[in-house]
Design a protein around this nucleic acid. Structure first.
Lengths: 337, 337
DNA sequence: TTGTACGCGTTATCAA
DNA sequence: TTGATAACGCGTACAA
């Protein structure tokens, strides 16, 4: 139960604790032979360096933070997995902070966490990444941080983004290519910037195809399946019923499919349905969902990599774009003639 | 950027740092008046104590660990949320550790994490909680820990469990009560103890109803929607097609519904489908899924509470049972006559 | 290439 | 009820 310390290792290897410290931190100025002896001693004792001691003594804690607030389980899980994987590659720990509360309080909570834990930097996920006050507070604090999918382009802070607008446009073009002309849209939560961008992509594709983008059927949803279901009912009741509905995320698309079932409208023969995000759900609903793959894991992995660079003083580009991907599954088909 | 320390607070409050420390740790032997002055000084400076310093100096780190390995996104999210909430109530931090690798290596990883981070205790989730070698290693290490849903009854280690067997039996009885006699079962992953318990509950209910439990239609699944779909196809092809199918979890139940759609079997009029767990999915598929609510958030919350007691030297019961709940939704109905 | 002395910010010990 | 001082286990600065 009594902790093994750097002193034990030093004694066993016959060197000073400073040399052990050098080996621990992969500093170059250690003779290969000495390094080997120290390594062996560490292994023999099953030595594990104390993170608190390192945090306290050094100017780095070897810990990064990940903050999120209230998104979906799938999103959080994917983000965490990507960030954890990247941290592991570099021998760092990830501290996860779930935020509650409103603006001011939230910022205080995050700054308190930073101060208490000594984290070296922060990965900020949406919707927190769109909070310009938070961004400003972090900047003032002088803490390295990387934003995932911020509003606009992160206001100069390093950000990892996907092109929601272009992806939505591509999906709409896919539907147009299948012969659809009345393509309805279920918009996502108004508070999320991605909602606006996706809607813009849909409109842009319609306009480019010579359709009246302003008059196109559009209903408001809130990123949940029930809201998608209700929006779909409103769309399906219209005299000029759409032959395709594009929902701003997969949950809402699942709601659209549910509504179609309820109205006796066959998917995809009478109605094509498309989603966005490519969550687990897309492969589970029936028919399986055509959707846009958002590489959440990859985005988190990259954001964490950028943060590691930043902490080490390496310059990083202001915006890193990640690609997206159309997943064509069973919920879309050629428009009935 | 320069950190505020206990010295600053002590100076401002006109006391020694030890007194500030006492206030910080809610020790009783401080005059109310002194305590107030110290509190005010802390607030005025927006003082945040250094967790690494406390971990290093004290015999407690005020940090608990949560270890998981590879379960579903929804499960992880619910467990984390419950544990984080409980930690927050007691002013503790939660360190989350995702494990990879096989038995030996996994144990080493967890013990290394414990040694490095100085966590005061560990919440162990399934399937790790069923690893008796891990349990033994933690016991030897002398670290407080609580198991969630272990195999058997946790081998004497404190555990939080739900009665999978009784719940599955109740669900089967519900189906029997709806007039079903041919009730098929899709078993979950053979590696999970809950799979066996749920199957036992199903069989017990059939036997109690005077049916031949041994000959009842049963197919193997692996906790995924595709495996549920395939199992359902096999069940639906039988000459004595079941009028109800009970799947060992919601994902597989979603697969069953999908298969029914594919075979042109109407749910619930021609086939009732029941699931287990009450994940998000249950409210999203069509028809919405009748299922057993497993209180994952609550289990994690309680397990963390027990762990906090344990760390403080308070005795806790060896097993804490949590209740379950039948959620009757749209996927089950009276058997066709 | 290696080692010595000190400090990081807190808790523990013991004395007042 | 309060305080002085020594740990805790490591990195940093500087010297050898």
């Amino acid at each position: 139960m009594t902790r093994k310390t750097i002193d034990h290792v030093a004694a066993l290897a016959g060197v000073s604790i400073k040399t052990v410290s050098r080996v621990l931190n992969d500093e170059p100025s250690v003779r290969a032979d000495t390094r080997r002896r120290v390594r062996e001693a560490m292994a023999a004792l099953n030595y594990q360096p104390s993170l608190p001691a390192r945090s306290l003594a050094g100017r780095r804690s070897n810990q990064l933070g990940l903050v999120y607030e209230n998104p979906s389980a799938n999103y959080v899980y994917a983000v965490q997995s990507g960030a954890i994987a990247r941290c592991r590659e570099s021998g760092l720990r990830l501290l996860i902070q779930a935020c509650g509360g409103d603006g001011e309080q939230r910022i205080g909570e995050i700054l308190a966490m930073v101060a208490q834990t000594h984290v070296d930097g922060l990965v900020v996920t949406p919707p927190l990444s769109a909070d310009s006050q938070l961004v400003e507070a972090l900047r003032r604090r002088g803490l390295p941080f990387v934003l995932i999918a911020p509003e606009g382009a992160g206001e100069g802070a390093p950000a990892v983004m996907m092109d929601d607008r272009a992806a939505a446009r591509e999906m709409t073009e896919h539907l147009l290519g299948l012969g659809h002309r009345r393509i309805g849209f279920v918009a996502g939560h108004p508070g999320h910037s991605s909602s606006r961008l996706r809607e813009q992509g849909w409109r842009a594709a319609l306009a480019a195809a010579g359709l009246d983008a302003e008059a196109a059927p559009r209903e408001q949803g809130f990123n949940t399946a029930p809201s998608g279901r209700e929006a779909a009912h409103r769309l399906l009741e219209r005299p000029d019923r759409p032959t395709a509905i594009f929902a701003g995320n997969d949950d809402m698309a699942a709601g659209v499919i549910l509504a179609a079932h309820e109205c006796g409208v066959a998917v995809p023969s009478e109605l094509s349905v498309a989603g966005f995000d490519d969550t687990e759900l897309a492969g589970i609903v029936w028919p399986t969902l055509t959707t846009v793959h958002q590489p959440v894991y990859d985005m988190a992995h990259r954001a964490t990599g950028l943060l590691i660079d930043l902490v080490r003083g390496v310059q990083v580009p202001p915006v890193t774009w990640v690609g997206h991907d159309l997943k064509k599954r069973a919920s879309t088909a050629r428009a009935a003639t």
